[in-house]
Design a protein around this nucleic acid. Sequence first.
RNA 1: GGGUGGUUAGCUCAGUUGGUCUAGAGCGUCUGGUUUACACCCAGAAGGUCACAGGUUCGACUCCUGUACCACCCACCA
Length: 893
Amino acid sequence: MTLSKAYDPQACEDRIYSLWEGSGAFKADAASAKEAFTVSMPPPNATGQLHLGHAVMLALEDIFIRFARMSGKEALWLPGTDHAAIATESVVIKKIQKEEKIADPRATYGRVKLVEKIAQFVEASRGTIRSQVRKMGSSCDWSRERYTLDPSLNRCVNEVFKKMYSDGLIYRGQRIVNWDPKMQTTVSDDEIEYMEEKVPYYTFQYGPFQISTARPETKFGDKYVVMHPDDERYKKYKDGDTFECEWITGKITATVIKDDKVIDPAFGTGCMTITPWHDMADFDLAERRDLPREQIIGFDGRLLPIAGKFAGMSIEEARPKVVEKLRAKGLLVKVDENYTHRVAVSYRGKGIVEPQIKEQWFINVNKQVVKWKKKQLSLKEVMQDVIRSRDIAIIPERFEKVYFHWIDNLRDWCISRQIWWGHRIPVWYKTSAKGTDMHVGALPPDGTGWTQDPDTLDTWFSSGLWTWSTLIDPALAGDMKLSLQDLLEKSPDFRKFHPTAVMETGYDILFFWVARMILMTTYATGQIPFKTVYLHGLVRTREGKKMSKSDPSTCIDPLEIIPKYGADALRLSMIVGQTPGNDFRLYEEKIAGYRNFINKLWNASRFVLMQCEQAKIDPSSIAALPDLATLSLADRAALHASEILIEDVTQGLAAYRLSEVGERLYSFVWDFFCDWYLELSKGNANHAVLVHILRRILKLLHPYCPFVTEELWTSLKPTGAGLLISEEWPKVKVERKDPKAQQEFSIVVEIIRAIRSMRVEYGISPNTKIIAYLFSDDHLPLLKSQQEHIERLAQLFGLMFKKPIEDEGVASTFLKGAEVHIALEGALDLKKLRNDLQTELLNLRKFLEIVNAKLGNPKFMEHAKKEVIELEQQKLASAEEKLKKIEERLKAL
RNA sequence: GGGUGGUUAGCUCAGUUGGUCUAGAGCGUCUGGUUUACACCCAGAAGGUCACAGGUUCGACUCCUGUACCACCCACCA
């Protein structure tokens, strides 16, 4: 088979992918006796397009999976998509607003119709994502594809909710939450970003006190003023003192509170008023002291009747007016215009988030009712335990600290959302004369009048179950008689493939997702979700900026790159030179560099095939390695090198050191195999060894660049072999400590270095007879060629004295020539030699200066010439000694 | 305010437990080259006091302390 001159990824990739898929290689077998190795693919949001973040994830996970599969494990990579509650709903709503010119799609369509429309949109997106995941070469098991809204996953969500509710871990409460007035829903603490904003900072007179705020419009209901008990300035006031005070809408009665937790006496005036309904800290204080709370701002973001004549105004509108009123009353003390204030903004909807008190569903993270390792722990404690006890390892390790810190600050998790897209809360209410009854369960109890809670669950509630809810048998999930425990125990996939081996994801969702999977999974299944967490860095632009979808000019689109450079090149460019947990920059030249590498491999294979063709050897007929004893020194050394490579790659991959392994492979292929061994083979090829080493390379490289290696494998595989994806990972017992192999190897290295130097000096191509001689059993020619050097050098010296001394070229020629000698003579360390020679050159120059001055004197000239040649001969003598030593070592072998 | 990471050739980055690193790769630059695969190539070269200052050590890019700058994360500074 003749290969084209350059590798054409577009001509191969799709074809190869269907070959793999058709072969069943992706499909894992729950009944297999092999050890399981599972990766749950972090489900991309079903909202749109695959971006580079996904591409990195897919590349990394595919390497894990292919390596595991070839290493004889039962490898399952389970793909899927996430319904991405708020993200999706807001995307679709915006789309409808734009395309259909409907201002409020929720009102126009109503719940059922809107959910239908979102579902349609998601279905289309999921199709796109599926094909994009394939483009990357991802060897995932499509027969097990899941979606967070699948009935079986929904069943798991409901079961977990029920279980948590009956354990008292889920409760309903009036608590302060982050309210997004734009999306009209709560958002979790982690879904908030802060934006710095310069706003005026006002100080007002509040009775005898001065208080400062950036948000005067929330202050209508403030009836408590708080100060630190140790603050000397306010010594004369006691906790509980009341006073009359003129305030925004008239006279109020205010109460003094002394509290040492919320007040920093050094900050500002050392006292403040509180707004429990709209401030997290104030809410905590109000909880502790059992103070009343009043709502000031409505859920629509407008002021409520408590604001008097300001009622109905938006915040932006009310703020200056409130300030103006207080100023008119003479209560405005000062305004600081240089105050920076952080505004909470919703991560998804980008609306300004307002803390509000609202009745919501929460998960209690502190209640100690979780059975874990025969102890009763809280969810928090379990989350800490699994990392501390090393049940789960995080790569890189430093993120463990970040994780612990996050848990320390974790408060009860608000899980209810006032949106329609998602898992509906499995709670039913029935209001009758005696009050409201409540029932928790997927289905309403018998009887009429039950209505379901209108809210849906936080998207992370269902993604927290991802590693195992996807392994629940959908057929079983329909049987409502089964308990959660039954579902787990009876699902073959869960039994075989859980816990998963590694969770690979960006460090930016460590809290969002990884932590919540640990929380939900340990609780629901009693197992850890995964043994290792591998966190990759974020892809950045060449300038180091985040790649954002909103700015396409900075963005590299994997779908444009793949046709141009190939998926293999893209994969390599995202893996090599990138270390876990650190961001990295990606740009086209980098990808082009790896495209060149792929092409290099392609051509090396082409060369091997051509060699075989010339020798009329069918590569597929090459099966067993020839007897080592019959091989030349170079062939043995090359085989030895490839065995060391196998060992390094295998160990490196097992330790998740992907960048290092990638670099090792790159340099082996290019610097060793192509520049060295292939050149050596020209004119004197051992086809069996060539093919063997190349096959090893293809196998080792397959997890990194699956397409090109699979394509080349077709031409190079032995008769009877199947696809490369299903090949066995090469195993060899490397005798690193075998002194003979080591010695052989180092001799070859030495000789090659010497040859390189010769090439520089004399332009001798490595594919000339010299090399053939060197590696034949008769090594005498090495000495002969050495003799040629001497003669050549002598000529150069002759030249040196004929030409003007200013000629730098002559001197440097001498330098290079000498390098050859010393390379053979000394430690073979060219860098060191260069230093030595630099000094030598300086001496020589000085010497030549004198010579130059005395050029007219022929006697002197003759003398000088003699001296230099003598010097050179001395060097030669020792060079020959060294050569003899090499000879002896060779003979001893 | 607390925390984490970074600071290594012009650029982008590696460097696993301190010693084959008197520091590597890719790209870029310069010189030379059409040699039985590959110009998406070959052979070379130039270029770094490994941010700075101390310390530990026989020995530090690698460990410790401090400083500076950059980036990110967390936090209820009203």
